[in-house]
Design a protein around this nucleic acid. Structure first.
Ligand SMILES: [Mn+2]
Ligand SMILES: [Mn+2]
Ligand SMILES: [Mn+2]
Ligand SMILES: [Mn+2]
Lengths: 219, 219
DNA sequence: TTATATTTTTAGATTAATCTAAAAATATTT
DNA sequence: AAATATTTTTAGATTAATCTAAAAATATAA
């Protein structure tokens, strides 16, 4: 019914609409998918034909209800598989994404449900991203970027804003895992870096780039 | 490198060569794959080009070493996933095959290894078929068809020769699971059916068709 | 408000995987 | 050995997914 490729386009459109809250442009999709704009136009026609997106020439696209449901389910599968790989098969959080990109396309509602149950209905994936339930509802959480924490404010690392392996491995090396306790000791205007205390133990200095990519739940 | 479709052809060729111990014919492959003979010829050229099969026009095909390794690994993945679905996600043995057909194509050697470890290196799948190890070695087992058991001989159900849902469900209904103890009480020449005793409890009569599709390890 | 730049679409090709129909090769019967 | 049947291959099309190059539409800047 819906091909592997079509599913990937739906996910890309979902991701773009989520960020911009507005319709996704052909060019944006082509960048997200690493394909030519011409290929995107072709595919948009096909997706519109199947009533998965709202498409008008030159106007960009949004997901229909049907398209949104499919995209949400893909994200659900993706993130459940990531939890499985990390929790049950001992993969690290920088390895799970690529394999989950493949696993998310396995078509079986029963499998998704059973996997969810087996994992005891996790609400967040290994990167702190919310896992929608079978009805497509996401759990929201109050979170800010570490960047937005003032001196002396405390919080817990609950997610990452960048998912690259290099960033995740960097975090590992400094024990900045999900759940880590952080207290901002000092902010340096010069380069926007911050000195923080980690888990009431070592102090360390984090660059502005790191601070912009860590989600914190204030405490 | 090797597409989903090419993988399915390799599996089909493996299966046919295994049974007949001889090269697989175009027609046999087309039946196994539910495609036209013309499509098979096309694909055989492509697989030969990639050095996955030995192919000569009109002569049928055999797998090369490379093709055999790939096919064996697919079977390994398939059967490991079947074990996972049954043992960990509580699927029944008539449900696991179709989902495993999809899962077997996930490309990650590390995933296969980790899954194998997680399942504690099973040697047989839910239908009693052997699971090759990472080097491609199958565990062999002395087994006969229930058909070949004489009166008063005993044994344990270790596998099935037919994998259809209807057969597996039939076995479930009569508690003829893997591990069941069977003693042949009487053979009826008239229709080749057998009266057997199951687990030292109930007696029941099994048709010739059932007896031809149950593998027994004599005891 | 015209000129320039950017984005998007169309036109025309390519490749993998499939098909049907017809031709060629091989196998089986008479 | 010739006739007939079966299997296999070729020829020619189709569909999904992709591409490049060029044209058309829209957005931005002078
Ligand atoms: Mn991911
Ligand atoms: Mn994730
Ligand atoms: Mn199977
Ligand atoms: Mn099996």
């Amino acid at each position: 019914m819906v091909s592997h490729t079509e599913e990937n386009y739906l996910k890309a459109i979902f991701k773009l609409s989520e960020k911009d809250k507005i319709s996704a442009s052909t060019n944006a999709i082509s960048k997200e998918m690493n394909t030519s704009a011409a290929s995107v136009t072709d595919m948009l026609k096909r997706l519109a034909e199947k009533d998965l997106i709202n498409y008008e020439k030159y106007k960009g696209v949004t997901l229909t209800k049907k398209g949104n449901t499919l995209a949400t389910n893909l994200i659900r599968c993706h993130r459940l598989w990531e939890v499985f790989l990390l929790e049950k098969l001992d993969f690290s959080w920088d390895e799970v994404h690529d394999i989950a990109e493949q696993l998310e396309h396995i078509k079986s509602d029963k499998l998704t449900e059973r996997l969810d149950r087996f994992l005891e209905y996790p609400k967040f994936d290994p990167h702190g991203d919310p896992i929608p339930d079978a009805e497509g509802n996401f759990t929201y959480r109050k979170q800010v970027l570490l960047n937005d924490l003032k001196e002396n404010e405390k919080g817990i690392v609950v997610g990452v804003n960048e998912h690259s392996s290099s960033f995740l491995q960097y975090l590992d090396r400094h024990h900045l895992n999900l759940g880590a306790q952080i207290k901002v000791l000092e902010h340096f205007d010069y380069d926007s870096s911050k000195k923080i205390n980690l888990n009431d133990q070592a102090d360390l200095i984090l660059s502005s780039k790191v601070c912009q990519n860590l989600f914190i739940q204030k405490s």
